[in-house]
Design a protein around this nucleic acid. Structure first.
Length: 108
DNA sequence: TTGTTGACTCTGA
DNA sequence: CTCAGAGCCAACA
């Protein structure tokens, strides 16, 4: 945590940390919650670099697929972590948003 | 202060 | 349904 101390970043991390196990959220959804665009959310996730306790693996794109990180193997690790949490992946590595997307604390 | 870059999303074909 | 191009916001140099 060094460049992730911005108030907006902190808000994004708080929302991501609120995602329960076995559920996922999209960049656009989080962006709407914090008041910014999906690009900013993705930027905040990139700033984590695995140095934080934020469950970044539960954040995926609108297509229900993991984004191809600059690291390369990060998306594979993300899929493995989500499968461990009970998230079902499609043959193409896609997640059923209708089944796993989290709508809020009152949804489960 | 301006320009570039990035884990995205939308619209059109 | 999939593929491709343009737009948007925030951080960094």
């Amino acid at each position: 945590m060094h460049r992730t101390t911005s108030p907006l970043y902190k808000t994004i991390y708080a929302v991501v940390s609120a995602i329960p196990s076995g559920r996922v959220m999209t960049y656009g959804q989080i962006g709407q919650l914090v008041g910014c665009t999906a690009r900013t959310v993705g930027f905040a996730m990139a700033a984590l670099r695995g140095e934080s306790c934020v469950p970044w693996q539960r954040v995926i794109n609108r297509q229900g697929k993991v984004s191809p990180r600059t690291d390369g193997e990060g998306n594979l690790l993300q899929r493995d972590l989500l499968e461990s949490e009970g998230v079902q992946f499609d043959r193409d590595g896609r997640v059923d948003l209708e089944l796993c997307q989290w709508h809020g604390e009152g949804e489960q």
